[in-house]
Design a protein around this nucleic acid. Structure first.
Lengths: 204, 204, 204, 204
DNA sequence: CATGAATGAGGCTTCATTCAT
DNA sequence: TATGAATGAAGCCTCATTCAT
């Protein structure tokens, strides 16, 4: 009986994941407004009404998608941030985590997020907290690096943080990899790190 | 007679410009989907049907807007690229032009472009050519810089090009300025150039 | 075995009564259209499918509710009609019963009925018979009253019947009580009887 | 030109009237919720979207219908109330107006209003003012009649007002006429007035 | 019998596009 | 050429009803 309940629960979760996966794909292909509930249901292989048993509104579907993805993203980053080592080493670790994350299936999601103004209002509420946490963590690492002389103290931290995210923007990252198939993600990651860290290193 | 036609032509062009200007504004304010033909016509001060005498579809309106803006953007960049000086100096010149461009009224347009996935399919065809030209120009400058030892030769040029655009992505640029009002565009521009050029400078 | 069946029967009837009671409440609170099968099931504490074991359609639920209520209403009225006394006294008795009925919990049901056109088509078939019986009984009393000179003979009986129901229409009755909380149902009942009976009394 | 504009205006108004007329009919036949915008458009002979050029929401359609009908109803009643004569005579005049009103095509509308709880919330805002005015006028006449000894002073005025409306409730009125085709509206009106006025007349 | 997840028809509303004037 | 009323396809969402467990 408990077995059976847990089975149902599992199946429900599996379907929810499938719905979110399909949502992610269509969102990537077509954007938020072109994405229709009909098409999601049809691709998942369920009736339209069934979608609404899981998510009450179209917006909730997308909000939940991003919330879940960002949550796992945040966990990954925070784990990397807790690695022992110098600020620079820890920042490298964070960068590696993020690029690794981007090179897998979730890149699609980040791509959609960074390229759709219309999602902003939907998502801001749910997403601001994890984003702020992550940025704050990066900022702390950068300031520690400034104090030990690793990073250039005359650069404002928030510019360094923004550049950190710009350099490895999922848009740029996935675009480069798509256009240059001979390049491995690791190689690209190496190049980007070199540019970024050399760019912010303190003058001798 | 030819005079009269040319007058009509001029008036037609003026109205087209006005339509595109209004389109740009609404696009920035509301995004592509929310932008309605009704509102464009109403703001321009013409009837909705008249819009269709100039642009056959809503999509054409936006496509043409971006094509024209990108064209002037391309001209500006090419002019900067033709400046005399070392590759690095010319690249700085290009960067300055671009950031100047972003800091004025046209930032709106770039902002909308970089934030709306739905525009991508509409625009890709018309925009690939000028974008490719610009990237090619940057790539040439970077390779010249590698040959004279200014830039790090072991970095693939296309990574350097992509990073060039990432660092000054209008998304990041306008975002930083909005969040940090005490920062002038010139200061931000200085920081970004310092990071980027130090990042790609050849190791001594 | 027969005992067990009868137990089951009793439980089934009890649940049906509960379902109808809940239906009555929701109908009063929200109207027919807003009333959802989900909410009925949830308030009753059974599964939605179970509702359909008792009533095949949403409409049946309401039809049956009204049929049962009208039936008990009819019984009450017929009992009052059988009271000994003059036609006028017996009519007063009927009126008292009806107003008493309206002032208790069943007013809800009458209120809903008199205020929802959408129920009309559903109910007409099932309700015409008891309504006709009641009207017929009132008509008989009125005609007896005419013959003994209590009521004005020149008024058509069916007008007197209709006016009888109009004056104590549950809509008006509950409305007046709601708007004038200082008035007791008994006082209101007294006023209405005075107006009605003085209105139909034979001229001297 | 002005002619042409006025023609367009007239046609627009004519169509609006037609839409409201059709709305009234369907409302009477089916009730508010069963009434679909599709059916209205189809019966009027226009496209669904065209409805929305005249009325922004389904609710507005009904609200506007009732507002217009009540407005003309109110005007008629107020005119009757201004007639010279004793309170009783003026009240008779009002009653005649109202019953005349009910015997024409607008009875449908009153029927729908008095029988649909779901309309109440929609309409209350727009309708409370004219209704209150009318009731207030009736109340004033009744109180004048009490002071000159025409009407029974011991009856609360608000009960007399409510009974006034109950006796000539459109529901009852149209029902009686429908069931008794041999009865003319004038005859029915005479009977109802006799009952009502005899009912409220002061005891000698 | 009881359950409740799944269904899908149907309703309201928007808006790009057309076309008669 | 300019207009703007009219169109109707398409989208989101609800909820009565069914049926496999």
């Amino acid at each position: 009986m408990a077995q059976s309940l847990s089975l149902k629960e599992r199946q429900r979760k599996e379907r929810e994941d499938l719905i979110l996966q399909v949502t992610q794909e269509i969102l990537f292909e077509q954007g938020y407004h072109q994405m229709s509930m009909d098409e999601i249901a049809s691709r998942v292989g369920i009736a339209k009404g069934t979608l609404y048993l899981h998510f009450q509104h179209k917006g909730d579907l997308v909000t939940e998608l991003f919330a879940r993805r960002l949550h796992s993203f945040q966990e990954m980053v925070e784990q990397a941030m807790a690695t022992p080592g110098s600020p620079r080493e820890r920042l490298v670790c964070v960068l590696d985590s993020m690029l690794l994350y981007l090179s897998d299936k979730y890149a699609h999601f980040m791509y959609a997020y960074h390229n759709n103004l219309e999602l902003a209002s939907l998502l801001q509420a749910k997403l601001s907290q994890p984003f702020t946490c992550i940025r704050q963590g990066i900022a702390t690492l950068l300031e520690e690096g400034k104090q030990v002389g690793e990073f250039e103290a005359s650069l404002p931290t928030f510019v360094m943080v923004q550049t950190f995210f710009s350099v490895l923007s999922p848009l740029a990252y996935t675009h480069v990899l798509r256009e240059n198939p001979q390049l491995t993600p690791e190689e690209l990651s190496g190049y980007l790190k070199r540019i970024y860290f050399q760019g912010i290193t303190a003058h001798r």
